[in-house]
Structure formats: structure tokens, C-alpha cells
Amino acid sequence: MTVEAACPLTARDYKSDYKPVWCPGCGDFSVLLAITKALAEVGRPPEEVAVVSGIGCSSRVPAYTNCYGFHGVHGRALPLATGLKLTRPDLLVLAAGGDGDGYSIGGNHFMHACRRNVDLTYVVMDNQVYGMTKGQPSPTTSPEWDSALVPGGTGLRPFHPLVIALAAGANFVARSFSGDPNGTAELIVEAIRHPGFSLIEVLSPCVTFRPEEREWAKQVHPAPVEPTDDRGRAARRVLTDDGFNIGVLYRGRRRPYQPPFGQAQVEVAEFEAEFLP
């Protein structure tokens, strides 16, 4: 192998001086590292990158980067990112957040963002719990998990974000594990480069409210099969796998949605004519 030509940007250049408030041990530290590593490899200067989030522990990511950021309201990262990308197609727009933000309160936007297929990369740090509000079940929490708010567990079948994403039309679907920041970075790089809406579901343990998730490190394994471009096959695989297959699971071929913006064909004054009787 050869060492690549000097690259002026490193992961550090995408990191701000603002220190994370996450609990030591949290998977999100690794995901932040993976995001900055990925951005460094993609090589767009930090000012040409926007990181958009909603609310939750993982949604604190934007201010921890040295990019333009938007830490909006709970659940609405994707529409905000969509509005930004549609009007500023020149930017690299990355949305980040957690399972509660993305799949519960933001669930409708998640489906429609997949469907719309704007060229966005969405990194979901899934820890199967609401951390910022002290440990309530999220849509991906297993039915028996006991908590103060839902004693005895929800009894509900967990939401399957990857299958939903595939059904709704996401163009790139991958699963990753926070304990593997290099692998996660690689997936993010590929997601950014893949046109259209890309979902990276990162299994990212919450060591405070779900300490048992530290065991994920032993459970994850590379996906045993190559990525497919067949949505049906991809959906069948993720529905039947053990939930710990890591890697690219689906690479679609849909064209991203990006109507022209900023190319005026007429002066606004020309519309006056239509109001003449």
C-alpha cells in the first residue's frame, strides 16, 4: 500500500472545543469520532458541512462539531435538514439523533425523508432508551424492559427502523456499532457519497440506563452477506437477522430528489400581468 497524499484536514478539524456532556462510556463519543473522521475523509471544509439534529443525548452532536450546526426541536431534524439541503444543495447536510427523536416523535418525518430521498445522511444512535429524560422505553426498546414510566415493560413489538426505511424508499441502509468508530466512519463516508437519503443505524450503548448494552460489543459481527440493491431481499434479511449484523445492508439506485433552486427564469414583476382583468 502507499500512504495517501497529504490531506489538509483531520478529524480534529471537524471537532469543536465544546466538550460533550455525555456519560463516560457512552457510545455517542465514538460516533462523534466516527462522524469527524468520515468528514475528514470526505474532505469538504467544515464550513460547507451542516449537522442538524433534534433533541436527546445524541442530538447534542452539532455543537460538538466545527461545522455549521442546528440543534432544533425534538423530532424535527429531518425536515429542517431537508429544507436546508433543498435550498443549499451545495452543502453537505448530515442529520444526527437518537431512536426516540427519530423513530418516535419524528417517526413520520423519518418515513417521508426516506420516501423523498433528498441527498441527506442520517446517523441514528440507537440505544433503545430515552437517556436525557432518565430512562424511558423508546420505540426500539424490547417489550419486557422494565422502567419507572412503564413498569413491567411495554409489551410492544419494537419498531424496526431498517425495514421501515427500506419500505419507505431510503437509498442506502447500513447498521453499525459505536465500538467500531473506524468501521462506522467508513460507513458514514459511503453513506455521504451515496446519492439520496442514507440511513446509518448505529448501535450505541447507553451505559447509564442500559448498562447491559455494554454486551453488544460481544454480539455484533460483520454482515455475512454482501450488500444488495434489492429492497425486498434487504428487508427480508434485516427482518430475520439477529439485529447485530454490521455493514452496508442495502445500496439503492433511486435518483435523489433535488429540484432546481436559484435559477430564476423570470422577474417577479412579470407576474403582475396576470392580475390585469
Binding site: T87, A264, F271
Partner: peptide, 30 residues
């Protein structure tokens, strides 16, 4: 007319999305 004037109107999935889409667009300068 927005199309002709170099703009864009996006039909959103709901009002929660509409308002956040325009906040995103305005953050970008529109």
C-alpha cells in the same frame, strides 16, 4: 411561480415538517 422565479415550494408531510423545512431553508439563507 416560485419555480419560475428560481425558488421552490415543498409539500411537506405535515405542518411540523413545513415549519421546520422553512427554518432549515432560512438558516441556509433563503
Amino acid at each position: 411561480r416560485l419555480q419560475k422565479a428560481g425558488g421552490l415550494l415543498m409539500q411537506a408531510e405535515d405542518e411540523l415538517a413545513s415549519i421546520n423545512m422553512i427554518i432549515g431553508g432560512s438558516f441556509g439563507g433563503a
